[in-house]
Simulated scan of single mutants.
Amino acid sequence: MTVSEHPFERLTPDFVMDAVESRGFRCDCRTLALNSYENRVYQVGIEEGEPLIAKFYRPGRWSDAQILEEHAFALELCDHELPVVAPLIDHTGTTLLHFGDFRFALYPRRGGHAPEFDHGDNLLIMGRLLGRLHRIGATRPFSHRPRLDLDTFGRESVSFIRENFIPAEYHDNYVALTTELLHILDELINAVAPRYIRTHGDCHAGNILWREDAPHLVDLDDARMAPAIQDLWMMLSGKRRRQSLQLSEILEGYSEFLDFSVGELRLIEVLRSLRILHYSAWLGRRWSDPAFPHHFSWFNTPRYWSEHILELREQIAALQEPPLQLP
């Protein structure tokens, strides 16, 4: 490997098929790269069988114990008959596989379409699913996977951007705004004192497949300890009135299986702020991966930082607003 080569550049179609065949399958030479930036994910055709999904983990991101804990959570949810796409268990009883320098997992392929959250019944169904998921997630904590907290998503992200990316002309504004923002977030999190449970962690429309009139959850790669509202707020959209109605539908279904602490509604803008900070740092940390400059060419431009500064100001204003109220 040359100094400039990124590890993922070694994931050629031949390498991917060799990895899959090392587990006893015979590939039919059809491979399709799927949209994934943090890891690399491929659909691989199998002779005399359904295609498989092969997920190759980004080196250095998760430990083996953290990946196995994610897999165990997915399998636990499946054992309780939740519609979650979990990794396959091989003949040795493991889900985390190795080939060359890579760790990977195999999944069954599941079809489906994006959820339509404009329909209240779909939000009710999603609420029931997440209520069931959180009822299981609340039974015990993760031992190895991290928490979604102010340090990892907030302070560390701000420090990384401040030290490595923010242009000089925006430096003072960025420091002032993030200092104020982090202080507000700290006060709100302490005031709410949320309960942390095992969550999907990244429950947005892109990680939900709707098939056979029901949602199926995919990609628990960001599963972590977090407040329950983390798995709910990304399904909300539009003006406050619309979000309140959406939330009411979700919680109607959710509460059939688990009580929801309404105090966590105060955390919606907190979690949105942390996601904004973390996303910017995530792009910066992955900039040496050739896929990122190619697909996110707008990052680290003067326009991006100008809009980011504005977004931080808007978040500070949003945090001053009262939380969403249920109708």
Rank of each mutant, 00 (worst) to 15 (best):
P13W: 06
M17W: 02
G24L: 08
D28S: 12
Y37G: 10
Y37E: 14
R40T: 04
E48A: 12
R58Y: 02
S63K: 14
L68K: 12
H71S: 08
H71A: 05
L75H: 14
H80W: 13
H80L: 01
G93T: 11
F104C: 07
Y107F: 14
P108F: 01
R109S: 14
G111L: 05
G112I: 00
L129P: 04
I136W: 04
R147S: 12
D149W: 05
I161P: 02
N164R: 15
A168Y: 00
A168H: 07
Y170K: 14
V175I: 13
T178K: 10
T179Y: 14
D186N: 10
L188D: 07
A193L: 09
A193K: 11
A193Q: 11
D202M: 03
C203P: 03
V218W: 00
L220F: 15
D221T: 13
D221I: 05
A223V: 04
R224L: 05
P227E: 10
M234P: 12
M234F: 07
S237N: 09
L247N: 02
S248F: 04
E249G: 01
E249L: 13
E249K: 11
S255Y: 00
L265K: 08
L265W: 03
L267E: 06
L267R: 07
R285D: 06
R286P: 06
W287G: 02
W287C: 09
A291C: 05
H295F: 13
F299C: 02
T301N: 09
E311Y: 11
E314C: 07
A317H: 05
L319E: 08
P323W: 02
Q325L: 10
